[in-house]
Simulated assay, not measured.
Amino acid sequence: MQTAYGIKFELAGQSSSDVQPLCVSHYADDETQVVIKVRVGPGPHQKVSLEVNDDSEHQNQLWRKDTLTQDLQRTTFLTKQAGEVVACFSNVLEDGYNPDPRYVRIVDIDFDVGAETIDYAKLAETEKLRPMELELRKLEDLVGDILENMEHLQEREKKMRNTNESTNERVQWFSTLTMVVLVALGVWQIFYLKRFFRKKRLID
């Protein structure tokens, strides 16, 4: 059984001067194939555009489509690093038209990641696989994806554990230094006050 991650929503038309993109995202591991399929419903006097970036520091652009139509449009790319794949939609009204509840378009977007991007019907035809062999191939690919996700989670857990241990060590050193400074200040204050009171002849 193949899993698909589909999102369907309404995208209101906005003036070109104050467009606020609406973004959706999906996580993907590094060196992973991703297929994005988009279909936009009808809507007069509106132009829907799409920009797909990763969530890296440089926000690398993975795909851009200035005018989306009712036809199914798709793109395939390979991720460079693990992280969120972010798809941002903008719906701009033509000049002379103002935002209105009537101006809205339905957007349907599907993310396929890893084994989900494989066309098993085409694969079965190419490799002449029997139905049972095809199901086994699907299970094999699915298990491979699960193992990769588990390895990624273990790596993240390791990094978080190392970060926590490093933070705890720094906190311990900081606490120790704080105690030493406080004790030193306390001792210094005692000697200073003693000398001060002796000068004033308030104590012997």
Rank of each mutant, 00 (worst) to 15 (best):
V40I: 06
A82C: 03
R161N: 01
T117A: 02
N53M: 13
I118P: 00
D110H: 10
D112A: 14
T126M: 09
E133S: 08
D204Y: 07
P131T: 07
L22M: 10
A87G: 01
M179E: 15
F9Y: 13
N98D: 13
A115H: 08
G41A: 04
M1R: 12
Q189W: 12
T76F: 06
A4H: 11
Q59N: 12
E133C: 03
K138T: 01
N149E: 12
T75H: 08
A12T: 08
T75Q: 09
V38G: 01
R161I: 01
R102H: 11
L22N: 07
T75N: 09
E169A: 11
T75G: 02
L193G: 00
V38P: 01
L185R: 06
A87W: 03
N98A: 13
D55P: 02
T76A: 10
S90C: 08
D100Y: 06
R105D: 00
E135T: 10
V104A: 05
S175V: 11
Y27W: 10
A4R: 15
F89W: 07
K200W: 10
E57L: 15
I203H: 01
N91G: 03
G96H: 06
L185T: 07
M179I: 14
M132G: 03
F111V: 02
A124P: 00
A115I: 00
V38D: 01
C23E: 09
L177I: 08
P21E: 08
I36G: 00
V107F: 04
V113F: 01
T79R: 03
K65I: 10
M1D: 12
L134C: 03
M132W: 13
R102Q: 11
V92W: 04
I106S: 12
K138N: 05
V86G: 02
Y103H: 11
S90A: 11
K128W: 05
E140R: 14
V181H: 05
Q172S: 09
I109C: 03
N98E: 15
F77H: 05
A124W: 01
S15L: 12
V24I: 12
V143A: 08
H152P: 00
K65R: 15
V34F: 01
K80P: 00
D108R: 09
V85S: 03
G6D: 13
I203E: 04
K158Y: 00
L182W: 05
F77M: 04
D54E: 08
N162M: 08
N149C: 07
F191V: 10
S15R: 14
V143F: 06
P21R: 06
S166H: 09
Q172E: 14
D100L: 06
L129H: 02
L177N: 11
Q61L: 12
L136K: 15
